[in-house]
Design a protein around this nucleic acid. Structure first.
Lengths: 264, 264
DNA sequence: CGGGGGGTTGATCTCCTTCAATCAACGTGG
DNA sequence: CCACGTTGATTGAAGGAGATCAACCCCCCG
């Protein structure tokens, strides 16, 4: 510090020293855990074979930056396992998370060269990558891929807009409750839990990451989580393991009109 | 009021009484002012002819609601002229704008029946509509349309994410400056103004709409605009007509790193 | 002339940030 | 194995940015 280094340069150097050994694996598309949700979900067997030819896997450690904002994107791809974040940073260091990437989510924008956001692995992450050019070519010839990508992009746009309401109009307590309900809902949809009874899940984010998600400080996040615990809306084991005894109550705290399609 | 009516019901009734006389016009696609930017931008002449068969125009007065959130969408379409907003409202009345629709922007989500947001005409609006089913069918058979829609959706997603940074992390002053710079940039790109020298444009939103856009109260909007005026960042004629003597200064006030591709 | 919509400005309040101390868990090197 | 540093988290005290409540202005229109 104090030698004219920018925050970004320091972060880069730190991470570069820590890892930079991305391992490689191979796997059949037919066995792929995200086969039915990812950008390839709609593909026929022959299309899948052609994708298989141009794909490769990359692993990233927790904390590692997968893509630097502004850098040239040489690949696009899907998150196979783990969790990553999309963040935007101002020069003075204020950061806002603008996307949460879960297994099957797509990274990269066909038709654009530079990355618009930092993509950072929150946990260890495995990605299924395609070099950008071949993928774009294939997309042009394979409506199934283009169509699925449109569908996924529209879903992301909806999520971003819901998030805008949270950021713009909700109180700190409502923001925390909203985040927890989003995580609970997603977790339930992945792991097929009983919708009735208590929900139990892990929050895959640090307090700081939650703050960056919600446009708060980490202290406020901590305080509001304590408050929700005190009021019996949630219970905690450790810092990350959450139990929600009454999901409708959580939604109420989030300021959402009840339900949201979860209690069906 | 006070008779058990919801805010929404009152708003609906009010608007229903005011207008509900949507006029109809017809126009050649080849003459269309948004021909090269809308969802049909990539279409060949034969594709355009088929679109022409299923299209129809609708006009809406300023203030009129084009689509009610939750209602069934019977059409999709493009804004031909005028400005509309996409807003989300909580039960207690808090509202957040989640999209600003300008000429060539697309309304509606193929593949989904219910509208997720209110769409409200800010000025008088003309829309080029397609009944939803025929349009979806056509999209399946016309990659040019699907591809263009993907492109537009990705752009909207980028805009939404930029907006999230504004909502989550910027101060009131920065928010106003950000909004003005966005309007200025868009206005310049439409009207091909000289990038050098003072920028002059109209803000097409009331103070309240600006507040809903930025997650502020209208009082704060008013105060911050006064402050920017006092500090010489902008000058005003009337309430809506803005002059920006130094665009770089405005960007600085917005907290954006300089430029943004405008001063090229 | 009255009334209403849009806008500005002032006074006060409050929710969240800021700054700071403290703690628990963990790893590391002496 | 323990002292030490680090990282993530909690909690407290103080201050401030923006919300809230309220008065008032301007302009248009019936």
């Amino acid at each position: 510090m104090g030698q004219g280094w920018t925050l970004t340069q320091i972060k880069r150097a730190k991470i570069y020293m820590l890892n930079e050994h991305s391992s490689s694996v191979t796997q059949e598309c037919s066995d792929c855990p995200i086969r039915h949700r990812a950008v390839c979900a709609r593909c026929e067997v022959d299309e899948l074979e052609r994708l298989e030819e141009i794909k490769y896997y990359r692993s990233f450690q927790a904390g590692q930056t997968i893509v630097w904002s502004g850098d040239k994107m040489e690949f696009v791809g899907s998150v196979v396992s783990g969790i990553a974040t999309l963040t935007q940073t101002m020069e003075d260091g204020r950061t806002q998370m603008v996307g949460l990437l879960l297994p099957s989510d797509f990274v990269g924008r066909p038709g654009r060269d530079g990355a618009a956001y930092d993509v950072v692995a929150t946990t260890d992450v495995v990605m299924c990558c395609f070099r950008k050019r071949p993928f774009e070519d294939m997309m042009g010839r394979t409506p199934h891929i283009a169509h699925r990508l449109l569908e996924m992009t529209l879903d992301e746009l909806d999520a971003a807009r819901e998030w805008m309401l949270v950021l713009g109009r909700k109180t700190a307590r409502e923001k925390i409750a909203s985040l927890l309900s989003i995580i609970a809902r997603r977790d339930a949809s992945l792991n097929l839990r009983p919708a009735r009874g208590a929900l139990v899940f892990d929050v895959p984010l640090t307090r700081e990451a939650m703050a960056d998600y919600l446009g708060l400080t980490l202290e406020t996040v901590s305080r509001q989580i304590s408050a929700l615990k005190r009021d019996g809306v949630i219970t905690l084991e450790g810092k990350r393991h959450v139990t929600v005894p009454d999901f409708a109550r959580l939604l109420e705290e989030a300021g959402d009109d009840t339900d949201g399609g979860m209690l069906s």
